[in-house]
Structures are given as C-alpha cells and as structure tokens.
Amino acid sequence: MPVHSMLKYTISLLAMLLVSYCARAQEDEDSTANKKVVVTQNQLCIGADFFQPVINSFSGAKKSYEIMIDYALEKDVYAVLEGGFGNAKVDYTSPALRYTSSNSFFRMGVNKSMLTRMHRNDWDCVFIGVRYAMGFIRRSDAYYEIENQYFGNTSGMVPATGMTAHWLELTGGLRVELFKGICAGYNVRTKFLMNPKAFRELAPYYIAGFGKGEKTAVFDFNMYISYAIRWAKKKPTAPQQ
C-alpha cells in the first residue's frame, strides 16, 4: 500500500475515532456542566500487549512480545515508553530461502487524551499520539537458491549481519479502567520506516515492533492490559510569610 494512501487511511481512522468519542465526551460534558476536575493523583501505568501472544500462538514463523509504561504529565498528556523483542524464521522452498532473524526494539513518545474527565478518579482516555522507535536486528546466515532451467540452478549463502531500523508512528486508541487499577485498551498504529535503504540487501521478513521488513509503511494493532499505580500529588507549599 503506498505511503500516502496509508497516511490518508490512518488519519481517517483517527478522525472517526475522535469524532465518535468526542460526541460521547460532549454528552458527558453536558451532564457535568462546566465542572472543572482537579487531578490530585499521579499515575504510572505498566502494561503488556496480550494481542501479540495470541498471534504468536497461531504462527510458527514469527514471535513478538511487548510491554509499555506511561506516566501522566500535565494537561492529559502521557509520556510513553514501549519495548519488546521477537524473532522470525523464513524457510521457503522453490526457490529456497532460509534464515532466521531476531530483534529488540523500543519506542518513546507521547499520547494526548481527548476525553474530558468526569471526576478526579476518571482515568479513561481516548488518545492520539506519536512515537519514535528503534529496532536492533540480527539476521543469521541466509541460504538461497536461484532456479534456472536453462543453465542450471545456483545456490549460496549471504553472511549474517546486524541492522538498525528507525521508524516513526502515528497512533490512536483508547484505554478504560475495568477494575480498580486494572486497565485495558488498544492502539492502532501507522508506522513509517525512516531508513529503508538499510534493508535493500535481504530485508528481514518480520521486525518485531514494526512488521514486515520489506515495507516502508505498515499498519498495526496492539491490545494492552495494564496496571495503574497511583499516588497523591504533593500539595503546593504555602509561601512563607
């Protein structure tokens, strides 16, 4: 899918998400007419993606695991750090192509909640965000075969190598507190590889955290379950007389 189409699709999706939840937020806002909620707690949320292990269980060829941490800053902005690791195995025949790859990655960025708080313990959010991400990839020796029915087949090996991937993400999603401190939510993401030239020579089939290594733009989905740790904010000290 071309990058501009993907970008258009993502923006449309995020816009739909925002419109639907802003409408709901508007209803909520009307019912709590002009109440200004003062946040009295800090929140640190630690979570894991439970969607990837579901995919892993169906796929023998790729594995990916991911965790996330976010911290509530001022004005419904959250600082986010995400990380994980994974691997992939390519074992194709006719013509043969065989190698394995593994990688770790991290992402950092911010989310901005678009929902108005109904009360001070309301931590549900519908958000949009951006990320910068890096992946550190290790590919094994790759065995290949080239079929040629006229002159005969050839085969060989491309030596193992390491690569670094940089990408940017636009993301949107929601998170809801199911029980006290236990939250669940999802992210949709569009990812744009910033250094595709590094992957011209045998791009890995799969990069954990990014997706298909041959693509410069990919669409992805995460579902997180997380635990929120909250503690009281320090009250501002009164100026001494």
Binding site: L97, V158, L202, A203, Y205
Partner: peptide, 9 residues
C-alpha cells in the same frame, strides 16, 4: 536480492 517472495536473482 529481489524480495522475500522472489528470493535472489
């Protein structure tokens, strides 16, 4: 390298 689908040429 052409692609993972095509392999090498």
């Amino acid at each position: 390298f052409i692609s993972n689908a095509c392999g090498y040429a």
